[in-house]
Design a protein around this nucleic acid. Structure first.
Length: 585
RNA sequence: GCGCUUGUAGCUCAACCGGAUAGAGCACCAGCCUUCUAAGCUGGGGGUCGCAGGUUCGAGUCCUGCCAAGCGCGCCA
């Protein structure tokens, strides 16, 4: 309908151009909006207001000319001028009713759009270091990222969901060393665990598993291990130096075995993350390993490309990327004095790899604490000769976790955190996802666990699911009363749907495809939730105001078609969010 | 100090790339179950859109300056 009205207005504009009322060089953008107030009809355009200045004509007068030049259309029953120069369109009710057969025919396809057809977009999200289980801080990125990916797919894009596994670097060495030390403890060695090691119970579990599989193969006496290791922080030393020395010692003593211990930690945690996300309704097309970039020379290749393009220089024994000339605050080290690549170096290679795979658009979903990282990655893309506008970085603010009044502190290292798994156990997948996606991702948000657990009945997700379940219930009641739904009869009598609630509901149903397109274009899945809550509200109101299972066959079936359409759209929307649709509540 | 993000009802949040009277939920008050599920519905109170300027027919939305909160400013990831 929006498109049709746009065409009609475009036609009017062309007419005014040809009659010389307005300058023929003007190319106004025609915007059609849903009217917020019924008194303003169904759709409105501010075209006359926007065009008034360049057309050198008062807005109202221009609006009159436009309306006069507007071609007639059977669906448009009235066009009004209002306010300072708005053009309001009133749409024929019966034309609007046609959305019902459309929904019933298209079913799960209703609302899908083709705006992204033929375009491949990669969405990278979560990408948490595999050094421990996911915690609630990752939950928001997971829920948002997967909802966004689904939304883009609904808008016609070919979506590639990807998790970048940071399986290289010092944090992973700390993990491997932590596992090894717990393994030695399991073998009876007694010592103080490093203050900078990973202290979570899961490390103990992995160590025990390692012991069960490999026996004493990796045993070393603690005296050997601790020989010449500088003191830890509690003993007056430096915790970083302490752990680094332990890592070096582990590599040295274990030799080939270090890889085995390392892999034991990595595979176990990665499997846990994979399972956790799957249970949370998040699945990926690809899990991309950072180490693979090191191993196949992609990092070296990326740096050599930067070098030959003149973006690298040597200073203080390290290799620097001159990112400050490309919009970054300062230059960045890519190859350290000690000969190791920085994380940034592999990230350059990773993004080069993404581009080489031919995606039309790259979307990175990062925690807001990484925002300072954006300019350097964009700089890298520019330096590689790529179009940096292909990359969109979307930031997800952290959810501050509360238990009642008390703020829950979290630290992966100390092992004190609420895991995503715990959250799922406490509040359930549906409620957690809904809650996370409900708010704009850039919005700071408070997540009160006490509230989410103790007052689950008040969670808005149930409100929407309940509307769905109610339709199911009505359809069950129908059968119990010995009736069957006659969709064809109902469609013949759609004109019987004349109640205010019904007209309102039909309008809202018709809006769904616009919501999808808009939410996808703006990367804002919360708009879908907003919409679903509105649709559910209108359904509940209707439910309370009118009886569906009436004796009048025509009216009953017309109403059943309407609520079946509501059910379909609720189901489509919830599916996008990976929230379940219970038939009974 | 510099940068990014945010600031809307008591609380948590919306507000269609600037539009007509800024909306929901929670909480609070008053009503609605011999009729399809009351996890629901109806009505009510509650707002200097952080503050001050500016841009224009029109600003919660754009610009500037302040104030406040979160985050960032490593040869960590």
């Amino acid at each position: 309908m929006k498109h049709k009205l746009t065409e009609l207005l475009q036609h009017a504009v062309n007419t005014l151009k040809s009659t010389g009322v307005i300058d023929s060089s003007l190319q106004p953008q025609i915007i059609i909006e849903r009217s917020r107030d019924d008194k303003h009809g169904d759709y409105a355009s501010n075209l006359a207001l926007a065009l008034a200045k360049s057309a050198k004509m008062p807005p109202r007068q221009l609006a009159e000319q436009l309306v006069a030049a507007l071609p007639s259309d059977s669906a448009v029953i009235k066009v009004e001028l209002a306010g300072p120069g708005f053009i309001n369109f009133f749409i024929d009710a019966l034309a609007q009713h046609q959305v019902i057969p459309r929904i019933l025919t298209e079913q799960a396809h209703y609302g899908l759009s083709q705006v992204g057809a033929g375009q491949r977009v990669q969405v990278e999200f979560v990408s948490a270091n595999p050094t421990g289980p996911l915690h609630v801080g990752h939950g928001r990125g997971a829920a948002y990222g997967s909802a966004l990916a689904n939304l883009l797919a609904a808008a016609g894009y070919t979506v590639h969901r990807e998790y970048y596994v940071n399986d290289a670097g010092r944090q992973m060495d700390i993990l491997a060393t932590s596992v090894w030390l717990r393994y030695l403890a399991a073998l009876g060695e007694v010592f103080t665990f490093p203050s900078n090691g990973y202290k979570g119970d899961y490390v103990v579990d992995i160590a025990n598993e390692l012991l069960a599989q490999a026996g004493r193969d990796f045993y070393q006496s603690i005296a050997t291990v601790m020989a010449d290791i500088p003191a830890d922080e509690p003993d007056g030393g430096d915790k970083e130096e302490h752990i680094d020395a332990l890592i070096a010692k582990a590599k040295n003593l274990l030799g080939q075995g270090y890889e085995y211990v390392f892999a034991a930690g990595l595979t176990s945690i990665l499997a846990d993350i994979k399972d956790d996300l799957h249970e949370f309704g998040v699945d990926y097309e690809e899990w991309f390993s950072e180490r693979s970039l090191m191993d196949d020379g992609a990092v070296a290749e990326a740096l050599s490309r930067l070098r030959s393009a003149g973006h690298l220089y040597d200073k203080d024994g390290a290799v620097w990327f001159a990112s400050s000339s490309l919009g970054d605050e300062k230059d960045r080290v890519v190859l350290r004095e000690n000969g190791q690549y920085t994380y940034f170096a592999s990230d350059i290679a990773y993004h080069m790899n993404k581009l080489d795979r031919g995606f039309d658009h790259l979307i990175n979903i990062w925690g807001a604490d990484h925002h300072g990282y954006i300019p350097r990655v964009k700089a890298a893309l520019k330096a590689l000769g790529a179009d940096e506008t292909k990359l969109t970085v979307l930031l997800v603010q952290f959810a501050t976790l509360y238990r009642g009044e008390e703020k829950v502190q979290m630290s992966t290292r100390s092992g004190e955190f609420v895991t995503l798994r715990q959250l799922r156990d406490e509040v359930g997948k549906d409620a957690a996802r809904f809650y996370y996606v409900m708010r704009r991702s850039e919005q700071h948000m408070d997540f009160d666990l006490a509230l989410a657990t103790s007052k689950t009945n008040e969670n808005p997700v149930f409100y929407v699911q309940y509307a769905y379940a109610r339709v199911c219930s009505v359809l069950r009641q129908l059968a119990e009363k010995g009736w069957t739904r006659d969709a064809a009869l109902g469609l013949e009598h759609l004109a019987r749907l004349t109640e205010t609630h019904e007209l309102q509901l039909i309008q809202t149903l018709a809006r769904y495809p616009e919501v999808i397109e808009r939410a996808a274009a703006q990367f804002e899945p919360h708009q879908v939730i907003q919409y679903l809550r509105e649709l559910a509200t209108e359904f509940h109101t209707y439910y309370n105001a009118h009886q569906f299972l009436v004796d009048d066959d025509a009216l009953r079936n017309a109403r059943l078609n309407l609520i079946a359409a509501v059910q379909q759209v609720l189901g489509n929307g919830l599916a996008l969010l990976s929230v379940s649709t219970p038939e009974v509540m």
